[in-house]
Every structure is written in C-alpha cells, then in structure tokens.
Amino acid sequence: SRHTFEINGERWTVEGVSEELKEILRAAERASNDEAERLLRLALKLI
C-alpha cells in the first residue's frame, strides 16, 4: 500500500509498506527533528 508523509517540511511517498512501518512513519511526522531522524533510520532498516 502507498503512504504519504511529511517530515521537516519534506513530503515522501512510499509504496508496499507494512502497517508497522506506517506506524513508525506517522510517529516520525509528529516527532522533533532529532527523534524523527532516529525513527527514519530505524524504518530504513526494516525496508
């Protein structure tokens, strides 16, 4: 499935992501810059 999210003013669209990964991306959208970066690094390990 496709998911579009915005982090630090940048929009991203990813396809074929699991519900778990979507949850991480949604958390990154709400997080501070440092926390968002940490969550994105974690998410990339899952891809």
Rank of each mutant, 00 (worst) to 15 (best):
E37Q: 11
E10K: 12
K22G: 09
R41F: 08
F5T: 01
H3K: 04
I24S: 01
G9K: 02
S1G: 14
R41V: 08
I47S: 04
R41H: 09
R2K: 15
E23A: 14
W12S: 00
T13E: 08
L44S: 03
R26C: 06
R11W: 13
A27C: 10
W12K: 00
S32P: 15
R38C: 11
E10P: 00
I7E: 01
R2S: 14
G16M: 08
N8F: 09
E23Q: 12
E35S: 04
I47D: 02
A43P: 00
T4L: 06
T4S: 11
L40W: 08
A27T: 08
L39Q: 01
A36C: 05
S1L: 13
E10D: 06
E6A: 02
L42S: 03
V17E: 05
S1M: 13
D34Q: 13
F5K: 01
G16E: 09
E35K: 05
L39A: 02
L44P: 00
E15A: 08
D34N: 10
L39T: 01
I7D: 01
E10Y: 09
S18R: 04
E20N: 08
L42R: 05
E37M: 13
E20W: 11
S1W: 10
E35R: 04
S1Y: 08
L46M: 14
R26K: 11
L40A: 02
R2A: 12
A28C: 04
A36Y: 06
I47Q: 03
A36D: 01
E35C: 07
A28E: 01
K45I: 11
L25M: 07
L46P: 00
A36L: 11
T13H: 09
D34K: 11
L46I: 14
L21G: 02
G9W: 04
N33D: 11
T4F: 10
L40K: 04
D34T: 13
R11D: 03
A36K: 12
E15S: 11
E29M: 08
L42M: 09
R30T: 11
F5N: 01
A31M: 05
L44E: 03
V14Y: 07
L44D: 01
I7F: 05
S18Y: 05
D34L: 11
K45D: 09
E35M: 06
E37H: 10
G16I: 12
F5P: 00
A27G: 05
R11V: 15
S18K: 03
A43D: 00
W12G: 00
L21Y: 03
